[in-house]
Write a protein that binds this DNA or RNA. Structure first.
Lengths: 140, 140
DNA sequence: GCAATTTAGTTGCTTAGCTAACTATTTTTA
DNA sequence: TAAAAATAGTTAGCTAAGCAACTAAATTGC
């Protein structure tokens, strides 16, 4: 099994997520790693729609819809319908969300450092290009 | 986002799974990629317990329990309690399961080839060792 | 200008990952 | 040998991925 590349990729993803989740839990932060990705996109793109988040994170509409609902329920973001196109939603950070982001950035950096930035520059470059190659193989 | 290594690893895993799932669906095969991993372990280790499968696949007890139930419901495997230790389960392939395995091997090979074996030997070696390094960083 | 199509988002169903709590055996150990 | 601890597996509740079907609004194309 350990020579199955899919298995190793999937396992590594799970271990990173798990490690990150534990660090957040240790800091008493009530957010999942995937929700963090969404929150970060909203923070960097005020008034973004769910479709656009989905494009950036390569996740489908139902998944984004539910994650956005979770973030709204936790009052980290504010959800408004767009006045120009009432099908669309305009998402923005709440005050609570901005506070969370500020708290989170250094913690996320630490998580990244532990698993990932210990890689040499070459390793970092290599894994990205190999992963990209795999994705391209599958797309075509 | 595309320079976030976790994001790329997780995305690649999803794309491989998705591609594989589509190939299986195109062949009208009613099994998930993850269930395939479990079935394969049972095929290579007759009378294995669920705990042992979990160790091999690095998945927890509830996850294995449910996947085994799915495989049993589809009649690909047979589940018996161990006579020596009645807490344990002894899993084995059914006739239907063995037929499926034979059908599946070449298809899985093709999936592997498409995404993964197009990698050069160096790339293959590199990605494995980098993934291993990341996992070790997180474990310690 | 109105029907047809496209787009944005939601809801429902299934599988899987994760945690926690639970039952029922087996093993340890005092 | 009897109580305590460890082990194997299940169940329940939550989040997320994937798919299909749906509503409602906007765009298009005749």
């Amino acid at each position: 099994m350990n020579d199955n590349v899919y298995f190793q990729i999937e396992l590594t993803a799970r271990k990173i997520r798990q490690y990150g989740q534990n660090v957040l839990k240790a800091h008493n932060i009530d957010i999942t790693i995937e929700q963090w990705l969404v929150l970060n996109v909203i923070n960097e793109n005020e008034l973004i729609s769910q479709i656009s988040i989905g494009e950036k994170l390569v996740k489908d509409k139902p998944t984004i819809s539910r994650m956005v609902n979770h973030l709204e329920k936790k009052e980290f973001i504010i959800k408004n319908t767009s006045p120009l196109d009432t099908r669309k939603v305009e998402l923005s950070m709440s005050k609570k969300g901005r506070v969370l982001i500020d708290t989170l950035y250094p913690i996320i950096e630490k998580i990244r450092f532990t698993g990932l930035n210990k890689l040499t520059k070459d390793e970092n470059k290599n894994i990205k290009s190999i992963l990209e190659k795999i994705q391209n193989n599958l797309d075509s």
